[in-house]
Design a binder for these strands. Structure first.
Length: 429
RNA sequence: GGUGGGGUGUCCGAGUGGUUUAAGGAGCAUCAUUGGAAAUGAUGUGGGCGCAAGUCCGCGCAGGUUCGAAUCCUGUCCCCACCGCCA
């Protein structure tokens, strides 16, 4: 949520961001109108309260009773307007960075840079599902029978491969030396503080989910609800990592605070019927290693660059070709100030596909979460970043398709071999 | 799930209807002192509205009673203890 004061003072910028994000800019005017009404009513209510307090201290019971009656008439009006304003404020998106491309949908995202050489095959490369079925390591058919569409079993070497990816990422995120190399590439002397590993809850309360700007009337359809217990399943580890410092004031010295968590993510994929139905690219449940961090406002953008540099490092170590994409206003998330994706090359589809995303939220989430940082004697809302380290399913796809051999076996990327305990996944035949 | 005890600011902690204007302490920030530090002293340290004076709100959350609520009542969430169940 944006600060109403910021909206008041930067009306045009907020309106532009709202319409650039394909939302109705009249939201902004409506909010400002309500805000004005609210402040007028506040003056009235506070005046009456002053009277009430005065009469109470004078023990003037008669006058007190009168004032109470007037207050009881007007207070509910104020409350109602405050509620409406809050609802509107939730709908107004974050403003965007200057380097965010303006565009109507994903077709206008901008490729910032590319890395790696696409593998050349002297045979027609297969896709991960064909390979996975033949190797006996992916089973979507039985999963469909047991759990429905968009579920899968990973078996045997696919599980070892996921475990190797997990170990590899973990070894990087907790290694200050390696992080230093990466942070130096962003800016000399920038913090190389390691990440704290976390095993977070997979369930989340609706009020916290709302404060994270991840549960709204529009996005509710994307969530798995557990109505009897009034809870939701998380769609990303971000959802329960982000509130880790809710209602806390942190100290500048603790910054940046970096966390990562390996969890399943649950998504209904409600708007994507018929899209990416083949294989395990788009699933209702997938494992993901997610990074989250809390920084001072000053370092928020640098932190995002650092996160992207980590993502690039991980993919480059795997030697998987990727492109870095600046997400345009029409495709970016509402809470994002800047969103950058990594798309990895997938020979089975002859396309780059999104494997990583990185969201810089500024204080859009922390304002509602009430997570602050004390800098000197100023207290400010912390700036929050979240980003993918590995989305396991999609990274496994990229490895399988890029490292396949003509006989259907799969070479294991060099960096993973020590964690995997072998150098290839052999064809069953 | 049951019974009892608790939840106060960055942290600890006092406060059982009106001198509380949320005591006191710690931490933190700024200043003074110092060659520098420690120690010491002073000031500041929840949020909203307002140019300001000021004013309102704030004691887990939501309601209620009262002229007046941190304090009384109801509901609810969380923590602790014991019981029940359990990997």
């Amino acid at each position: 949520m944006l600060d109403i004061k910021f909206i008041r003072e930067n009306k045009d910028q907020v309106k532009k961001a709202t319409s650039d994000k394909q939302l109705d800019p009249s939201l902004v005017e409506n909010a400002l109108g309500l805000d004005e009404k609210r402040r007028d009513l506040m003056k009235e209510v506070e005046g009456l309260r002053t009277l009430r307090n005065t009469y109470a201290s004078e023990k003037n019971i008669e006058k007190g009773k009168e004032t109470k009656k007037s207050l009881q008439k007007i207070e509910p009006k104020l409350k109602e307007i405050e509620k409406q304003l809050l609802e509107l404020l939730y709908k107004i998106p974050n403003v965007v960075s200057e380097d965010t491309p303006v565009g109507k949908d994903e077709s206008e995202n901008k490729v910032v840079r590319k890395w790696g050489e696409k593998p050349k095959f002297d045979f027609t490369p297969k896709d991960h599902l064909e390979l996975g079925i033949a190797l006996g390591i992916i089973d979507t058919e039985m999963a469909a029978k047991v759990s429905g569409a968009r579920f899968n079993y990973l078996k045997g070497d696919a599980v070892l491969l996921q475990n190797a990816l997990h170990q590899f990422a973990l070894s990087v995120l907790t290694d200050e030396k390696k992080l230093k190399e990466i942070s130096e590439s962003v800016e000399k002397g920038y913090s190389s503080k390691p990440f704290i590993p976390v095993i977070p809850p997979l369930f989340i309360n609706p009020d916290v989910y709302t404060k994270m700007a991840r549960l709204s009337p529009e996005t509710e359809i994307e969530r798995y609800a557990i109505p009897r217990d009034n809870q939701y399943l998380i769609g990303s580890a971000e959802h329960t990592l982000g509130p880790l410092h809710m209602d806390q004031t942190l100290n500048e010295k603790q910054m940046p605070l970096r966390y990562f968590a390996f969890t399943p993510a649950f998504r209904r994929e409600a708007g994507s019927y018929g899209k990416d139905t083949r294989g395990i690219l788009r699933q209702h449940q997938f494992d993901k290693l997610e990074m989250e961090s809390f920084t001072t406002p000053e370092n928020g953008e640098k932190e995002q660059n650092f996160f992207v540099a980590i993502q690039e490092y991980l993919m480059a170590e795997l030697k998987i070709p990727y492109q870095v994409v600046a997400i345009c206003t029409g495709d970016i998330g509402g809470p994002d100030y800047r969103q950058i994706d990594l798309d990895s090359w997938m020979p089975g589809q002859d396309k780059y596909r999104e494997t990583h995303t990185s969201d810089y939220m500024t204080d859009y989430q922390s304002r509602r979460l009430n997570s602050k940082v004390k800098i000197k004697d100023e207290t400010e809302f912390v700036h929050m970043n979240d980003a993918t380290a590995f989305a396991m399913g999609r990274t496994i796809i990229a490895i399988m398709e890029n490292y396949q051999k003509e006989d259907g076996s799969i070479e294991i990327p060099k960096v993973l071999q020590k964690w995997m305990g072998k150098s290839e996944i052999l064809s069953k035949a």
